[in-house]
Design a protein around this nucleic acid. Structure first.
Lengths: 197, 197
DNA sequence: CGAATAACATACAGTCTGCATGTAAATCCG
DNA sequence: CGGATTTACATGCAGACTGTATGTTATTCG
């Protein structure tokens, strides 16, 4: 009964090992790329063996998917935290995009979420993850703006995808040294262009 | 002097071997992914040995870069061929985007150019390739439209990137089964939103 | 308390990449 | 024209990595 060291429930062990593996993989996947990070290096950083990894995850790609899911959730969380509620549609879009671009400045995040993620998991796989997190609120905001009449009516799914894609490319360009103000200005112009006169 | 079979200049041999390797790699990289295609399979398809591959290319990534470059050029060529010259800015943009989306329907092209390309060569590497081909005319068109006063003035580099990114995502979404009309409508709305009233 | 199962650890097979070395053909040069 | 040099490969090897199969120990179930 007493949780002495040396007496742990299987659920605790699993949770701890999975968590250690994901943390170690996250660190390496953000420092280097998915392809450049080997499972021997990951398990060494997590102080377990490859046997543990392949017990908890089907393969290296499944571990990667878990890391991406966690990181996408973290980005969505940062946006939600930074965005004050109850603004009008346009201000909410601006606040959200600023928060997104700020969140994507975390080292290695753009490569993990915007380059390796789509290549390894496929665009469909990444869309599934994104729709569970960030994209959802973006689409809801757009739908609300369209309903309220402040934005042109357009297919919500397509509009969400293309705007999200513009955010993504802006994050990549800014990390590559592009002018943050320039990209912000263009994003703003795109929003305003979609608003009803 | 006579080009008998068995007497070929080194330049001819190099050109033929390089071309065979790129063609074989292009076929496999578009059928499967970069990661799933091994160099043994490539050289077998090209009827050469791995020694030839590593003689002509620094590594597998360099061969991939050559394939991407060729394919990006092909896309740009198809767009140029399909786009009648001397339209006004808006019609040129629409024609160009339609031609781009049509060109990206070639099997495997979206994965090669939009998923594997950025992941393997980096976003900066892909930008360098894109700027040598398709993006160039897009930016020139946008600059011309801005100069003529028919479009809002915005930083050309950023605007080009974000619009190109929207094209890319539209191509991916359409291939994944998304409604071509929906994405076309959103792209058109984005253009019109950027035009000066 | 025994049986079944979960959570690993270890060992192995197959494959791949990049390089080093060897060889024949082409080119250069005096 | 002929030897020296360089080019265009072919072959073999070393190291690393992935996934799996098998063995072992700690839990959990009945």
């Amino acid at each position: 009964m007493q949780p002495e060291s040396g007496r742990r429930s299987n659920r605790d062990r699993t949770e701890a090992t999975r968590s250690d593996l994901i943390a170690a993989a996250r660190k390496l996947f953000t420092e280097k790329s998915y392809a450049e990070t080997g499972t021997p290096e990951i398990v060494a950083a997590a102080s377990v063996t490859r046997g543990a990894l392949y017990h908890h995850f089907a393969d290296k790609q499944a571990l990667f998917a878990a890391v991406v899911e966690q990181e996408a959730a973290a980005v969505a969380q940062e946006i939600e935290t930074a965005s004050p509620p109850a603004l009008d549609a346009r201000d909410a879009l601006i606040a959200g995009s600023d928060a997104y671009l700020a969140a994507m400045r975390a080292p290695g995040r753009t490569r993990l979420l915007l380059l390796d993620g789509p290549a390894v998991l496929g665009r469909a796989g990444m869309d599934a993850i994104d729709n569970r997190h960030g994209n959802r609120s973006l689409r809801e905001g757009l739908v609300a703006a369209m309903r309220s009449g402040s934005m042109k009516k357009l297919p919500p799914e397509a509009l969400t995808m293309l705007l999200a894609s513009a955010f993504d490319r802006a994050a990549l360009a800014i990390e590559a040294g592009g002018s943050s103000e320039d990209y912000r200005a263009v994003l703003l112009a795109l929003f305003d262009g979609l608003s009803r006169a």
